[in-house]
Design a protein around this nucleic acid. Sequence first.
RNA 1: GGCCCUAUCGUCUAUCGGUUAGGACAUCGGCUUUUCAUGCCGGUAAGCGGAGUUCGACUCUCCGUAGGGUCACCA
Length: 476
Amino acid sequence: MPNNKKVVTRFAPSPTGFMHVGGVRTALYAWAWARKNNGTFILRIEDTDKAREVEGSIPHIIESLKWLGINWDEGVDIGGEHAPYLQSERLDSYQKYAKILIEKGYAYTDPYTEEEVSAFRAQAELEKRAFLYREHRLETTEIWDGKKPLRFKVPEIKSYKWNDAVRGELTAGEEALDDFILIKSDGYPTYNFAHIIDDLEMGVTHVMRADEFIASTPKFLSLYEALDIVPPVFVTLPPILSPEGNKKLGKRDGAKDILEYKKEGYLPEAMFNFLAFLGWNPGGEQEIMSPMEIVEHFSLEHIHSSGAMLNEEKLLWMNKEHMKKKSYEEQLVGIKPYMTEYSDEILERLVPTIIDRINFYGELHTIKDIEFGFFIKRPQIERERVLFKDDGVDVASNNLENVKNILKDIDFSSADIIKQAIMPYAEKEGKGNVLWPLRMTLSGQEKSVDPFTICFVLGKEESIIRIDEMLKKLDS
RNA sequence: GGCCCUAUCGUCUAUCGGUUAGGACAUCGGCUUUUCAUGCCGGUAAGCGGAGUUCGACUCUCCGUAGGGUCACCA
């Protein structure tokens, strides 16, 4: 920290659709840094490209952040001392600074048409050179009337060297500098211009953004200089790579809407944990952390330089770990929406068994019928399947009869009590001879939950009904 | 093509000049379990290549190589 100014960070997405992991992670780091320093976190919306704007994006962004527990002190929906937080409502500010730049001789009306500029660009591409508008700069005295683009006039063509909180010293050649557009012909500012003005007016001290912005940082720096602004601290985040290859993960490469994870029943704190560790690591061996622990440990120096692939298997594991840390009541609440056809009575006893078998709640959609269906639907099983190995009908039916008699007289308040009641008998008669028929009778499945838990979940009455039904079948 | 960034097990990472290069996910094996799941124990597996600096380099420098980013009236 260069001084003891209060830390102010912001997340400034454009409303062009859903939020994917990359965007959310940027928000998360900015938020964590503000919280860590008792600073301010701002949610600003950069809606200066009307063509790309997608209806409903802002509520979607807000829902995504809120789901993860990322809250803001100032922002579009709640206002704040630097309102408004929608760039389209801040046009006056951009005009003000545009005028200052014009007066200083650092901005001029773009004399070319869009087609002409495109032609220059095409030519540069053909010659395999970087396109530089400034090479075509004309001396123009045309007064800017707001109908043509306003361009920044780079005060000085030079190489830049600057400091990044993550990457250390960064450099760029002169080619990175150009006369970029400040205000478009539609009257809206470009990102390059608007974010600098907003960050200045909102007192932003740390700018977190992904490394694709390194290349345009010299443009920002030259604008800061032209405006006599002390730049904020730059915090460059590493790219998130797609799981397949070494491509940067983008919407086109399968980056999922973060709310998809919500729909699938992932825990927000697991997602938070996963995202936080994708590009940052506190250094210890603890990997499962709550959002608050992450805030506590968060530091800029431990943000990585190199990109990381998104590994959903690790997310699965992390989600399970967080699920296991939840209280029984919380687990029940989490499971319930996915098990609506199960009675509370059954579900309440089934919770630990379910948690053991899933990585995220949404998994229940695909496995609940196969794994737990027999709890609510009596299985139809042929008598032969109840017989264990070659021991014959008599053993199974005799053992079931005896187990039934044991069950009749005991307390069903836990699977463990049931186990303790049955085990001595099972040990005596051969575990397989007793437990196999019992599990088959109750569940109809060779591979399923242990028979004691099944009894416990089903309850005494239902367990005995099922055993009686099977006994009838075995007798006939 | 110019400019820039990056480089440790398959994957995510620890190491901030001296370690048998540690952990996690995945994988494989074992134990527990009548079965499945959970749980526990263990194994396989890594410093891109080449120069230099140094008593000593995964760590610092340079050159390669590979991957990525960027060169918009998009952010």
